[in-house]
Amino acid sequence: MSERLAVRKTYKLFIGGAFPRSESGRSYAVTDAKGRFVANASQASRKDARDAVTAARKAFPGWSGRTAYNRGQILYRVAEMLEGRRDQFADEVRRAGASKSGAAAEVDAAIDRWVWYAGWADKLPAVAGASNPVSGPFFNFSTPEPAGVVAVIAPDSPLLGLVSVVAPVIVSGNTCVVVASEPAPLPSITLAEVLATSDLPGGVVNVLTGRRDEIAPWLASHMDVNGIDLTGSAGGDVPGLEDKAAGNLKRVLRPRPGFGAWTDDPGTARMTAFLETKTVWHPVGV
């Protein structure tokens, strides 16, 4: 019996619900923790970033217009799909350097994290909103609204870190452009395959793989991006990126000093970082 020919997977970008190659035609080799070749990943250019922002902007009215309850349902559905791909994720996390049991634990934690954020969809308005006492005949209340398109520079934690930065951004109705971990981008594309098959509208999450310091400045300066999460940026790059982000007063989430581990309790900070507050004055007693 002849040996079977290997069918190798092509890792591409995820933009607007489709999987295009980089418009630049470039790719780069991804290696495992021991330096062995694993796969080629697309190396996104600034034009891919531009296209991703356009796709995210297009998806924003639809996604933010859904009921919080429906967004929660869809995110929970994503968790179900993640569950079905445990082995694939575990394999990819292992190649990025984790032990066998460590990889399995990270995949479990990532799925749990996603479910945890999914549950927040319809609770966030109650926690981040308020009814405000005012000295006048008004019922005054504040509700959180999504900021818009958020650029996310993902950390190098290949799956748990990725999930922990993407889920809190989209749960409130934002759409996002994610720049995946540079050394370990493969789980991000596998996550994109999960998202593409789980009722999440195309364009809500867009994933770019490639060089962070090439793509991040374009996203930071982009006038149609409303917020940027710099978690995965190198410390030295942060001031420059913040400077660019000031061009249109983006909301910026800085990498936290003294950050422990991704397995720590995440709290609500990542969700509330990309919210705007809408306050309504409703006349009463007239």
Partner: peptide, 9 residues
């Protein structure tokens, strides 16, 4: 300007 613009403007 050298930066991408948006429809808001």
């Amino acid at each position: 300007t050298g930066v991408y613009s948006g429809p808001d403007y």
